[in-house]
Design a protein around this nucleic acid. Structure first.
Length: 808
DNA sequence: GTCCTTTCCG
């Protein structure tokens, strides 16, 4: 008996002892409460379930009002998150000691809301209990985790007045709290003010820098810490490895790896995982894999780093393989796993796998995770199922800014500009404030519509949102204005920008190119290579070559094509070759163009033969045109556009039998021609005209004005180009020509706008030769500026001239 | 008894 009277200093192994004691305690009475069996049971109690079994015993023993029992109960209720019960016990205590309050406050800090925690902290102080250091450390941590800066500051002040301003633990908690609340300057100030620092406080300030985007400072601080005599521990390493990854400093990462090996830290799963992640982010996937394979213990974070690392480096097949491996091993996926897998599916455009992951995330109850759902929206968009993406978006309960951005980007990228704009308006109606990501998605949708009115509206929105200093947004605007016909506005914005990315330069050079301002494009390119910090890439050269092609600058084009390989080491892609063929072909150097094709190091694609055929049509070289046309029909037998181009070439050469053959061929294969149409926007409404259409409400007036217009321009010297039409009388030819969609749209523009207003129209195909000639005369006789965007470029008509110099 | 750490959607 004597031995059982001893206080139970070390708890016995939980399972067997727990039940044994439960059944042996009932019939004995005890004089010293802390030796009572139910107290021993409380001491080894490890869950609320067990506590519920013991409680009746405690009450029955009549000892529940003993202070030592009350303290134990408050401690246990607090630990298991039963704060109301803990408070009830405290309320019954006659002589409340400080320790009871402290224990309950710890429970609040860990298991309850910050509101309740603060409320209790206030009660405690009102009841005259002096706060101790760890009241502050616990509560400060909770403030940091909840990003509650206001309460954090209150605690900080109270902590100072309570005399803990120099306490290492308390001050480290303050440093951490400010860092979590993104107040890095405050964080640094507090760290610097600390009279004593330990390893943990160094780790805290390093983490503060690393997590607030100051990776470089974080790495430097590790050096300072060593100079002050602290040796980095495993937590230091885990903290700075993401900083190395941020800068892709694999060299530093490797030296940290070596340090970790010497110190034996690689045994720790978090250190090895951080190494795997660092190597993945530095693009060294094979090294990451090596570290990963050598890990004796892996957790789900290790798998996530590995899977996402592959997905982010474009090795999505392997990412999915790893994902399946992880599932086979029975590791439970987390939100991060699912997001990485969805990213890989999106990258692969693999809808079937994406759907499987969708099912899986529902199985794991992750459909309430908004980030996961946002990734799901992105996955469906990128797998060309914007409809499914929109459906998920529509059913989302708590849409975030990222949800809106994902679905808007989905529509904008998949050529649904109107839907993208509509959602943009809806999000503002729902008081969701768009950010730079939203605008970088919406602006290209406006560019796609090519409506200057909309362009100015979205530009206004950018200014009102104070995003006019954002380089991504401004680059999108430069590109948009160029694509909406406002190349000079684009240049003004370009000049106003304080920072320009490579893409900004490319957009502006290409803008000049499509507007036929080849010289301006080349001047800007020169400025870029000689007076700017950015270096051209292969896209820059594509823009330069295309600008040369649109302006007939053949010599320059050939020069830059050679320069691109010689000085910059870029291998020309199919698009570069296509542009070169276009350049030579349009200039009439058809033999050269054909030889150029023959010497290509790769199989020529449709862009190359398409450029060749187009050039042959312009310059009426039927022999080479036929060769290019046949190659095209072999490569793309279903595309009606090439048949039409071939037929038009024959028609221009008056080879009517051949025209009939091509048309018959098309008919037999059931291939339809893409009908040409022209759009014009007036007062928020887009009017679309097809050749010969009479369904416009103002049709009568349009044709009447057109008839008069034809007489006016004929008097000014216009000669209808009837070459490409045959088997009808001349007056019918004239009628067919004058009812082309371009002319209808211009006539409508003339009668619907004030004299002197610029008319801007857009054609879905290339502008036709006769319309081009007629528009020049129209600009002369009406004194109007007319801007035509076709599928290739812009034509600015003014005073009887076109900016393309009849070269297109 | 107390302070610091790894994977993360557009």
């Amino acid at each position: 008996m004597a031995s059982t009277l001893k206080p139970c200093s070390s708890p016995l192994p939980a399972k067997s002892s727990f039940n044994d004691r439960l059944y042996s305690s009932q019939s004995v009475s005890w004089h010293r409460p802390h030796t009572h069996p139910s107290f021993s049971l409380l001491e080894i109690c490890s869950s609320m379930k067990e506590l519920n079994q013991i409680l009746p015993l405690v009450i029955k023993s009549g000892l529940s009002d003993q202070p030592i029992f009350q303290a134990k109960l408050i401690g246990l209720f607090s630990r298991f998150g039963r704060l109301p019960q803990a408070t009830l016990v405290l309320d019954r205590v006659a002589e409340k000691t400080d320790e009871l309050y402290h224990s309950l406050l710890k429970g609040h800090a860990h298991n309850s809301t910050l509101d309740d925690g603060f409320l209790f902290f206030t009660r405690m102080r009102l009841e005259g209990v002096q706060p101790v250091v760890y009241n502050f450390t616990y509560l400060l941590k909770t403030c940091g985790d909840n990003f509650d800066l206001a309460r954090g500051k209150v605690l900080h002040a109270l902590m100072i007045t309570s005399g803990y301003g120099s306490n290492v633990f308390a001050m480290t908690a303050v440093v951490n709290m400010y860092a979590k609340c993104r107040q890095i300057n405050e964080s640094k100030k507090m760290f610097d003010s600390m009279p004593q620092k330990d390893l943990v406080s160094w780790n805290a300030i390093i983490a503060a820098y690393a997590q607030n985007g100051l990776s470089g400072t974080a790495l430097h601080t590790v050096i300072s810490m060593q100079q002050e005599g602290e040796r980095p521990d495993s937590i230091t390493l885990v903290t700075i490895l993401p900083a190395c990854a941020d800068f892709k400093f694999s060299k530093i990462g490797k030296s940290i790896h070596a340090y970790a090996m010497r110190a034996g830290f690689v045994m720790l799963v978090n250190v090895s995982t951080a190494l795997v992640d660092m190597y993945s982010k530095c693009g060294l996937l094979d090294t990451a894999r090596l570290v990963f394979d050598r890990m004796s213990v892996k957790n789900v974070v290790s798998w996530n780093s590995m899977i996402d690392g592959h997905a982010q480096n474009g090795r999505s097949e392997e990412a999915m393989k790893l994902f399946r491996m992880m599932m086979d091993k029975g590791v439970k996926p987390t939100d991060v796993t699912i997001m990485a897998a969805l990213g890989a599916c999106a990258d692969l455009g693999d809808l079937d796998q994406g759907r499987l992951v969708h099912k899986l995330l529902i199985e794991y109850g992750l459909q309430s995770d908004i980030s996961v759902m946002n990734s799901l929206i992105a996955m469906y968009s990128r797998c060309r199922r914007v409809d499914l993406a929109a459906e998920i978006f529509g059913n989302l309960k708590n849409k975030t800014l990222v949800s809106w951005n994902s679905v808007i980007l989905g529509y904008a990228q998949k050529a649904y500009p109107y839907e993208a704009l509509k959602l943009f308006c809806n999000m503002r109606k729902e008081n969701m404030k768009p950010d730079s990501f939203t605008l970088v998605s919406v602006i290209p949708a406006v560019a796609y519509l090519s409506i200057l009115h909309h362009a100015k509206w979205i530009h206004g929105y950018v200014i009102r949102s104070c995003l006019h200093k954002n380089v991504y947004v401004m680059t999108a605007l430069v590109d948009m204005y160029a694509k909406c016909g406002g190349v000079n506005i684009a240049r003004r914005l370009f000049d106003m920008m304080e920072e320009r990315h490579l893409i900004t330069w490319n957009a502006m050079i290409d803008g000049y190119g499509t507007h036929g301002h080849g010289r301006a494009a080349l001047e800007l390119f020169q400025e870029m290579i000689h007076r700017s910090p950015v270096k051209p890439n292969n896209v820059t050269f594509l823009c330069v070559l295309s600008a040369c092609s649109h302006s007939g600058l053949v010599g320059e084009g050939l020069h830059y094509f050679a320069l691109m390989k010689k000085d910059y080491g870029f291998e020309p892609s199919m698009e570069h070759y296509g542009t070169m063929v276009d350049l030579l072909g349009r200039a009439g150097r058809l033999e050269e163009a054909w030889n150029f094709i023959q010497e290509m190091p790769m199989e020529p694609g449709t862009s190359v033969y398409g450029a060749m055929l187009g050039a042959c049509k312009i310059h009426q070289n039927v022999e080479l045109g036929e060769k290019a046309g046949n190659a095209l029909l072999k490569l793309e037998p279903e595309d009606g556009g090439y048949y039409v181009l071939l037929a038009n070439m024959y028609a221009t050469a008056s080879m009517w039998n051949e025209v009939a053959k091509v048309r018959k061929n098309m008919e037999n294969k059931g291939i339809k021609k893409n009908p040409g149409f022209t759009c014009i926007q007036l007062k928020n409404k887009v009017h679309t005209f097809y050749s010969g259409c009479t369904n416009h409400p103002l049709s009568r007036e349009i044709y009447k004005r057109l008839e008069k217009l034809m007489d006016e321009i004929k008097a000014a010297g216009y000669v209808p180009d009837t070459n490409s039409i045959h088997d009808v009388e001349d007056d019918v030819k004239m009628q067919l020509l004058s009812s082309h969609s371009e002319k209808l749209a211009i006539s409508f523009g003339l009668i619907s706008t004030a004299p002197g207003t610029t008319i801007q129209i857009r054609k879905n195909l290339r502008v036709c030769g006769d319309c081009h000639s007629a528009t020049k005369f129209i600009s002369l006789v009406t004194g109007r500026e007319i801007i035509v965007r076709d599928m290739q470029r812009f034509h600015h008509f003014k005073d009887g001239q076109c900016s393309c110099g009849d070269y297109w």
